[in-house]
Simulated scan of single mutants.
Amino acid sequence: MAKDKIKRIAVFTSGGDAPGMNAAIRAVVRTAAYHDLHIFGIHNGYEGMIDGDLRRLDIRDVGNIIYRGGTILKTARSKRFMTPEGRRSAYEALQAFDVDACVAIGGDGTFTGAKVFSEEYDIPIIGIPGTIDNDLFGTDYTIGYDTAVNTAVQAVDKIRDTADSHNRLFFVEVMGRNSGFIALATGIASGAGNVVIPEVDTSLEHLIELLRLGVKRKKMFGIIVVAEGHKLGPTTEVAQKVQEAIDFYDTKVTIIGHMQRGGSPSALDRLLASRLGFGAVEGLLAGESNKMIGLVNNEVVFTPFGEAISNSKTPNRNLVRMAEILAI
């Protein structure tokens, strides 16, 4: 769709929330206002799109939200949007508001739906990567990742005090069902004794051997950061097996959980969200469609949804090796 054909844009958040989503919404709204476009916010993601839950936004609606976690537009996962009937209802709702294009903020599930929808109804959509997992191909960082890592590092720093005081070994589980980005960064930044992530095969025997070496070196406490999707089994069971094999430590488990998804976004996430929100609107006006906007080597790039979804993105192996060496 040509630039002069786009007059009304809708923005929505979908899937899991991530710190910085509000900063992205703010950038989209203000950039649209600069270009004299009408901008609508869709509440509750694809569910709200199907129900026609849209309202006009202006720059006053996004004042003082750049520092807020969560999303003012709310978010939801939608089974109805997975059906042709649901997408038809969503399209009709957008037509009722004369919406010409959309900005979707979310992760791979959001972009999977956006790809199908854009192809079925020829509506331009640009996706902004908003997920703490940082697992989307086509961008070095996703919105929310940096804040999630900072939250996890702060938690590990506090746990270290207790570990040191009681000669304890802590397994600290962070989010990352299929991705070890948060765990790896948290482990390195917090000086953890080991990191266990889904992308790297680690045996329980190898982990126990490393811990025994630590005991020989009179290492009085330990912290192991694990991604929730690691392959050794439930973290509590792994900790129990380690306790049975090594009685030197009092072994504990801490699961940080959804704390990582909340809180005020970091400066880096606010900057990233602002750049991508601004770039999404400018990209639509330049004719980009059915693509995710991202930042690669500090430059804005557009990656087709199909590539962003299907291509894998894994942690840097040099960082994995470095984490092992620095944990000695």
Rank of each mutant, 00 (worst) to 15 (best):
G106I: 03
A90T: 13
D100P: 13
N64K: 05
A104K: 01
R77D: 05
V116F: 06
E92T: 13
F97M: 06
V116C: 05
E119G: 03
R77Q: 14
G106R: 05
A114W: 03
T71W: 00
Y67C: 12
K79Y: 06
E85L: 11
M82N: 15
I72T: 09
N64T: 03
E119N: 10
K79H: 11
F97P: 03
S78E: 08
A114M: 11
A101W: 03
G63W: 08
R88Q: 14
R77H: 10
I72Y: 03
V103R: 03
Q95P: 09
T83H: 05
K115Y: 09
A114F: 06
N64R: 04
S78C: 14
A114C: 13
F111G: 01
E85P: 00
F117Q: 06
E85H: 11
G69Q: 11
T112H: 04
L94S: 04
G107Q: 10
E119H: 12
T83P: 00
R68P: 00
K115T: 00
G63S: 15
R80A: 11
G113E: 10
D108G: 03
R68T: 08
E119T: 12
T71R: 02
T83N: 01
I65W: 01
A104R: 02
R68Q: 12
G113C: 07
G69M: 07
Q95T: 14
G86L: 14
Y91T: 02
D98G: 10
S89A: 14
D98K: 14
F81M: 15
V99W: 08
V99Q: 12
R88M: 15
T112D: 04
D100M: 06
P84I: 09
G109A: 08
G107K: 09
R87V: 06
G106W: 00
A76L: 04
G113S: 09
T83A: 03
E85Q: 13
F117K: 08
T110D: 02
A76M: 02
T71L: 05
F111P: 01
P84N: 07
T112Y: 02
I65D: 01
R80H: 08
L73K: 08
K79N: 12
K115V: 00
R87Q: 15
K115L: 09
G63P: 00
Q95F: 08
R87W: 09
S118N: 10
Q95Y: 07
K74P: 02
G107W: 00
R88L: 15
T75Y: 02
F97N: 13
Y91R: 15
A104D: 01
I66T: 12
G113Y: 06
E85R: 14
R68D: 01
K74Y: 11
A93C: 07
A96G: 10
A101G: 05
I105D: 09
G86R: 14
V103G: 04
D108N: 15
L73T: 07
Y91F: 15
T83G: 02
T112N: 04
G69Y: 02
G86F: 14
D100K: 07
S118D: 13
S78W: 12
D100F: 09
L73D: 08
D100T: 12
A114V: 10
A104W: 00
M82D: 15
L73E: 11
A101D: 09
E119V: 08
Y91W: 13
I105A: 10
N64H: 11
I72K: 11
T112P: 00
S118F: 06
I72N: 10
G63C: 07
A93D: 11
A90H: 14
Y67Q: 15
